[in-house]
Simulated assay, not measured.
Amino acid sequence: MQFKDLSKLLSQFAMVGQLGLSLLMPLLLCMFACYLLCTKLSVGAWVYIPGFILGLGGSMTTAYKVYLSVIRREEKKKRVRDPKEVYFNKHI
């Protein structure tokens, strides 16, 4: 296996790990905030329902942003410049 292939494989594993954390952390943070509200302020257990919904919304938002960044990076890699095309710095 070449170094380039190994680098690409490790990069893909890192993106999967980042996506997993992006899905999990907002939900866990909202659940922890609900736990603190219930224990410190003696709020009812009903707080977990909106906290869970807000955590899922945060998870989906961050996952969507990670998805967009991956798509944007792949589109940059696929773009191939035409040698005949005129660019800002190349007029002739």
Rank of each mutant, 00 (worst) to 15 (best):
Q2A: 11
K4G: 05
K4V: 10
K8R: 12
K8E: 14
L9T: 10
L9D: 08
L9P: 00
L10T: 07
L10S: 11
L10I: 09
S11R: 08
S11G: 15
Q12D: 14
F13P: 01
F13A: 13
F13N: 09
F13E: 13
M15H: 09
M15A: 15
V16C: 06
V16L: 14
G17K: 02
G17C: 09
Q18S: 11
Q18R: 08
Q18I: 12
L19I: 08
L19E: 04
G20S: 13
L21G: 12
S22Y: 01
S22L: 05
L23P: 00
L24Q: 03
M25I: 15
P26G: 03
P26N: 04
L27N: 01
L27M: 13
L29P: 00
L29N: 01
C30M: 15
C30H: 07
M31L: 15
M31T: 06
M31F: 10
F32H: 05
F32I: 09
F32M: 10
A33P: 00
Y35K: 06
Y35V: 05
L36N: 05
L37V: 04
L37R: 00
L37E: 04
C38F: 05
C38D: 05
T39M: 02
T39R: 08
K40C: 08
K40A: 10
K40F: 10
K40H: 09
K40Y: 09
L41E: 08
S42K: 14
S42P: 00
V43H: 01
G44P: 04
G44F: 03
W46C: 01
V47Q: 00
Y48M: 04
I49H: 00
I49C: 02
I49T: 05
G51F: 01
F52E: 01
L54F: 14
G55H: 02
G55D: 04
G55E: 03
L56G: 05
G57R: 02
G57D: 01
G57F: 11
G57E: 03
G57N: 03
G58V: 04
S59W: 00
S59L: 02
M60K: 03
T61D: 06
T61A: 13
T61C: 08
T62N: 11
T62D: 05
A63W: 01
A63D: 02
A63V: 05
A63L: 06
Y64Q: 07
K65R: 13
V66E: 09
V66M: 04
V66W: 01
Y67S: 08
Y67G: 04
L68K: 12
S69P: 00
V70Q: 09
V70T: 06
I71R: 14
R72Y: 07
R72T: 09
R72W: 03
R72C: 03
R72K: 13
R72G: 02
R73Q: 13
E74D: 13
E75L: 15
K76I: 11
K76P: 00
K76L: 14
K77N: 14
K77E: 15
K77C: 08
K77L: 15
K78W: 04
K78P: 00
R79T: 11
R79M: 12
R81A: 12
R81C: 05
D82F: 07
P83F: 04
K84N: 15
K84Q: 14
K84V: 08
K84M: 12
E85A: 13
E85C: 03
V86D: 08
V86G: 02
V86M: 11
F88V: 11
H91M: 14
H91D: 14
I92Y: 09
I92R: 10
I92N: 11
